[in-house]
């Protein structure tokens, strides 16, 4: 009885300690971004400039566009491939899994080091723009998107669904786009959300290839206007948090509907 009481109290104390450790830096960000250096007065100027400073708004726009293009690229590349492997070339499934999880073993930093020749061609063919980062980002989000979609795909009987559709006269294109994809939609959406969060926070590739995405500009500005980069940091963390909270609700809905 006393043991149980001690355990309850120490459990809450430990949870409080963890909460303090994780929340303190975020509170510090908020404090720093709303304080005028030296005088210590409160101000919303740093937050306001997120929407007004042209360099910052341009960076936000670039990062959001990159997130969008990455999601599109990921869906177009990965979803048909994974469904195709599942239905028609199951013996390639180990290969595709290996390739999709490979970016976990080959860090982004390594890819950047070796990509110079490839990017010379990319910029030669489609011009020099931050949006060309999309190609590398699709590779970087592959492991996370793969896991999310794979979980959804293994939870349905894709083989039977496609046989049913084909016996009713559907072609392979229809099977993939109208039959299987709608059924793995939660997994695709989950992969998309994680991709967005990863792209918005990506710094390694964009900084080393000298493109001004949001994290790169945050670092650039920290030299001249620290409160503004603190505000941008907190804003982007909160945005990513909001995305993942929405995702966790979607995930919960999926689980409850499956269980029934």
């Amino acid at each position: 009885m006393i043991g149980a009481w001690v355990w309850r109290v120490s459990r809450w104390l430990l949870l409080l300690a963890f909460a303090a450790f994780f929340l303190l830096p975020l509170v510090a960000l908020l404090d720093f971004s709303t304080t005028i250096p030296r005088t210590g007065e409160r101000t919303g100027a740093a937050w306001q400039s997120l929407l007004e400073d042209p360099q910052m708004t341009q960076a936000i726009k670039t990062s959001l566009l990159l997130a969008l293009f990455t999601v599109i690229g990921m869906v177009v590349l990965l979803v048909p491939t994974m469904i195709w492997v599942k239905l028609r070339v199951p013996r390639a499934s180990r290969l595709v899994e290996f390739l999709c999880l490979l970016p976990l073993t080959i860090p982004a930093l390594v890819v950047v080091v070796g990509i110079k020749n490839v990017y010379a061609w990319v910029t030669y063919l489609i011009g020099d723009s931050a949006l060309t980062l999309t190609f590398i980002y699709v590779v970087l989000v592959l492991p996370y998107a793969y896991r999310s979609i794979d979980a959804a795909l293994s939870s349905i009987d894709a083989g039977t669904l496609s046989e049913a559709a084909r016996s009713l006269g559907a072609g392979w294109f229809t099977v993939i786009t109208r039959v299987i994809t709608p059924n793995i939609w939660p997994g695709v959406l989950g992969g998309a959300f994680i991709s967005v969060a990863l792209v918005l926070g990506e710094y390694t590739v964009s900084s080393l290839l000298n493109y001004e995405t949001l994290p790169v500009v945050i670092v650039l500005l920290s030299k001249s206007d620290a409160p503004q980069s603190m505000a941008a940091s907190l804003a982007s963390i909160l945005f990513a948090a909001a995305l993942l909270v929405v995702l966790s609700f979607l995930d919960r809905r999926r689980r409850t509907t499956v269980r029934k």
Partner: peptide
């Protein structure tokens, strides 16, 4: 997963 730059700034602010 979001990580990176922003976390560094959070600790600089702390």
């Amino acid at each position: 997963q979001f990580g990176g730059v922003t976390l560094a700034f959070a600790w600089i602010a702390t």
